[in-house]
Computed example of a mutant assay.
Amino acid sequence: MGIRSFIAIDLPESLLDLVQRIQKDFRKMGFSFRWVKPEQVHITLKFMEDLAPDDQLAIQEALTETAAQSAPFALTLQGCGVFPNLRAPRVLWLGMGGAIDALGVLQKRLDRFISQKTHDRIAMEDRPFKAHLTIARIKGGVDAKPLLTALKSHAGFQSEPFTVSELHWIESRLNPTGPVYRHLSTVSFGAKASEP
């Protein structure tokens, strides 16, 4: 059986504190969601459910090449919402602002390299990439009205910018108490950031 893993961008500590504060806001409003631990909050670029040992070297190569062709850029956390919709919410998320185009280019480049290096055993994503941070998972029904009020109260929220300059490959093992993460590899971007 292969490993369950993903490639992601980690957040600086200051922003993880901010995530925790937003989770507390929702708790105070009476929502008892399944909260994602702040240290497990990240921007997922590629998820791989069952990665064969033979493909692990290919993933490392794809990661290295993606980073070598990427330059640092800045993002912010901005606004929040739910997937798939207010009538049947499953995920509470924080949105992204800043250099979203650069993030999209990075995700596509990574996706393409992984597909090439694994000879399409790991296919490219067919859904459009939506940059977000999952901060809670929602089980059971939720009254849409108070949830909409809570979301509106955080609609104008925006964090300080943070710089994205490396990628993390992380194994995720599922336990009854939640996923346990183990860092497999971290690669830094090789290209220089262009001057504004």
Rank of each mutant, 00 (worst) to 15 (best):
F6L: 15
I7G: 01
A8W: 06
I9N: 11
I9C: 13
D10R: 14
S14I: 14
L16E: 00
D17K: 14
D17C: 05
L18P: 11
V19A: 15
Q20F: 00
I22F: 13
K24A: 02
F26A: 11
F26I: 11
R27E: 07
R27T: 13
S32E: 15
R34H: 12
R34N: 04
W35M: 01
W35E: 08
Q40S: 11
V41G: 05
H42C: 10
T44W: 13
F47D: 14
M48C: 03
E49F: 09
D50N: 13
A52L: 12
P53N: 13
A58F: 10
I59T: 06
Q60N: 10
E61H: 08
A62T: 03
L63C: 08
T64C: 00
T64R: 04
T66K: 09
A67M: 04
A68D: 04
Q69P: 02
A71D: 03
L75P: 01
G79I: 05
V82W: 00
F83C: 07
F83G: 10
P84I: 12
P84V: 12
N85F: 07
N85Y: 05
R87H: 05
R90Y: 02
V91Y: 00
L92Q: 03
L92R: 00
M96Q: 09
A99F: 01
A102K: 10
L103K: 13
V105N: 05
V105I: 09
L106A: 02
K108H: 10
R109V: 06
D111K: 05
R112D: 01
F113C: 05
F113L: 10
F113R: 11
I114R: 00
Q116W: 04
T118S: 02
T118V: 05
H119K: 13
D120K: 12
R121Q: 09
I122E: 07
I122P: 01
A123T: 08
E125Q: 07
E125K: 08
D126R: 13
P128W: 07
F129N: 02
G140I: 11
G141P: 00
V142T: 12
K145D: 09
L151M: 15
K152D: 07
S153M: 14
H154S: 07
A155Q: 15
Q158I: 15
Q158R: 12
S159D: 08
P161Q: 00
H168K: 09
W169E: 13
S172T: 06
R173I: 08
L174T: 03
N175E: 15
P176L: 09
S185E: 14
S185R: 12
S185W: 03
V187P: 01
F189E: 03
K192D: 09
K192G: 05
K192H: 06
E195M: 07
P196D: 01
